[in-house]
Simulated scan of single mutants.
Amino acid sequence: MEIRYATNPEQTKTYDTEKLRDEYLIERLFVPGELKMVYSHVDRYIIGGVIPKGNTLQLEAGKKEIGADYFLERREIGIINVGSAGVVTVDGQEYVLETKDCLYVGLGNEEVTFTSEDANSPARFYFISVPAHKQYETVKLSISEATPTHLGDISGSNERTIYKYIHPDGIQSSQLVMGMTLLKPNNMWNTMPCHTHERRSEVYFYFDMPEDGTVFHFMGQPNETRHLVVRNEQAVISPSWSIHSGVGTNNYTFIWAMAGENQSFNDMDMIEMKELK
Rank of each mutant, 00 (worst) to 15 (best):
I66A: 07
V82I: 15
Y95V: 05
S84Y: 14
I66C: 09
D101A: 07
V90N: 04
T99A: 11
L72I: 09
K100C: 02
L97M: 07
K100H: 14
E94I: 01
T89G: 03
Y95E: 05
T99P: 02
L103G: 05
R75C: 04
G78A: 14
G78Q: 12
L103H: 08
D91W: 03
V87S: 02
I77T: 06
G86W: 00
E98C: 06
I66L: 13
E94L: 04
E73D: 05
V90K: 05
G78L: 07
V105C: 07
G92K: 13
V90T: 03
V96M: 14
L103A: 10
V90Q: 04
D101P: 01
D91H: 05
G83P: 02
G67W: 02
T89A: 05
Y70V: 11
L72N: 06
V96P: 00
C102S: 14
R74F: 07
K100Y: 11
D69R: 14
I80S: 08
L97Q: 06
D69K: 15
L97T: 02
D91C: 08
S84L: 04
E73N: 08
T99G: 13
L97F: 03
I80V: 15
E94T: 08
G78R: 11
S84V: 04
Y104P: 06
E94C: 04
D101I: 03
T99W: 00
S84E: 14
D69I: 07
I66R: 12
V87E: 10
L72D: 03
Y104E: 05
Y70E: 12
E76R: 11
G106E: 08
Y104R: 12
G92C: 09
L72H: 09
G92N: 08
G83C: 07
D69Y: 08
A68P: 00
V88N: 02
N81E: 04
F71L: 12
V82S: 08
E76Y: 10
Y104S: 12
E76C: 13
F71D: 05
G106M: 11
A68S: 14
V82Y: 00
G78I: 11
V82D: 03
I79D: 01
G92A: 09
V90R: 04
V96G: 01
Q93K: 15
G78Y: 05
Y95S: 04
E73Y: 02
T99M: 13
